[in-house]
Amino acid sequence: MSAPLANRIRVLRAERNISQSELAAAIDVSRKTISTVEVGRFVPSTVIALKLARYFGVPVEEIFTLAEDG
């Protein structure tokens, strides 16, 4: 089942000028985890979502939103 989860990881990465690989290393996951989350192919766990939020310094809901919420 495809999860209707949108995310702003690519935008947040671009703002901070960091690569997928650097982000993955910072939150201790594989690079593929980041690339598949970015394109919506992999739904991350709560732990990964919280690690991303902590890394970017924003609330989780600023990174992930349900697609129908826009």
């Binding site: 997928q20 690989s21 650097e22 993955a24 290393a25 996951v29 594989s30 690079r31 593929k32």
Partner: peptide
């Protein structure tokens, strides 16, 4: 070049 890329290679 990083643990993240090594994880991909290992998989």
């Amino acid at each position: 070049s990083s643990r993240a890329e090594a994880s991909d290679s290992l998989a």
